[in-house]
């Protein structure tokens, strides 16, 4: 007779420590600026929990982090990144460079490889050479530098649109001309706003509000977008990189 206790199988555990809180984020790098945006809806299933829960956070004057996925992990992760940056500032009396923040985020995510933060991160900002940069991460820390990236609930709607509009995929340049390697800031802003209004139309977890962060390289002016309604400056230094946030409404249904 088999020993029953020896063939006891592990039981399915009921508790799921994760939830999916919807929303979408995206970032686009320009030649000397970066735009990082996210909607502000937070939902669980078919219920909207709140119409305003920010997903995009200023880390330093030249780095902005967008976090999407499980909201509790996202908030905790941002808090921990901010504290690591504070220690860096204590030690070095300056802000951490963007590429170093990117590597830091990788190690912090991979440290949780076996109980991951269930979040997709997009880091945007200005590199030390003054160029705009976007880094995108998966939940366990795999990352790369890109020119643009969308993540979250409506990634599958927005990313193809960006591929077409930013990378000019499936577009043929006019004879004798080539596609620009970087778009100007006003064009990028309209692409961002269009991405989100469209995602709001087609995805139930996207909507309510839009927060667009703009990071400008040292010495670059707002050129073409100054005086936009709802534009607020968040920079702490007057002569370094500058950070702005632009708030827009999205449909609430």
């Amino acid at each position: 007779m088999p020993n029953m206790s020896a063939i006891v199988h592990p039981q399915q555990r009921h508790f799921n420590p994760y939830a999916e809180n919807g929303g979408t984020i995206l970032a686009i790098a320009g030649a000397d600026f970066t735009v990082i945006a996210g909607d502000t809806r937070q939902s669980e299933g078919y219920s909207i929990q709140t119409r305003y829960a920010p997903k995009v956070f200023r880390l330093t004057d030249r780095a902005v982090l967008a976090v999407n996925g499980f909201a509790a992990d996202g908030n905790m992760f941002v808090k921990k990144v901010k504290q690591r940056l504070e220690w860096y500032k204590h030690a070095h009396a300056k802000d951490m460079p963007l590429r170093a923040i990117a590597r830091l985020i990788q190690t912090m995510l991979y440290a949780q490889r076996f109980f991951p933060y269930y979040v997709y991160n997009i880091l945007g900002g200005i590199e030390e050479d003054g160029s705009g940069a976007v880094y995108s991460f998966d939940p366990v820390g795999s990352y790369e530098r890109e020119a643009c990236r969308a993540a979250g609930a409506a990634q599958s709607l927005v990313q193809p649109f960006l591929d077409n509009q930013i990378y000019f995929k499936n577009q043929t340049a006019a004879p004798g001309r080539s596609h620009p390697s970087h778009l100007p800031l006003p064009d990028v802003l309209s692409i961002v706003v269009d991405s989100f209004t469209s995602a709001t139309e087609r995805h139930i977890e996207v909507g309510d509000g839009l927060e667009i962060y703009i990071v400008l390289a040292k010495g670059r002016s707002l050129q073409g977008v100054e005086g936009l309604h709802g534009l607020r400056e968040l920079s702490t230094q007057e002569d370094g990189e500058r950070v702005f946030v632009l708030q827009r409404d999205l449909k609430k249904d």
């Binding site: 809180n21 709140t50 829960a53 908030n75």
Partner: peptide, 12 residues
Amino acid sequence: LFVDLLSVTYTV
């Protein structure tokens, strides 16, 4: 304020 068992938080 709101907090739930997964620590999902928000204010509305």
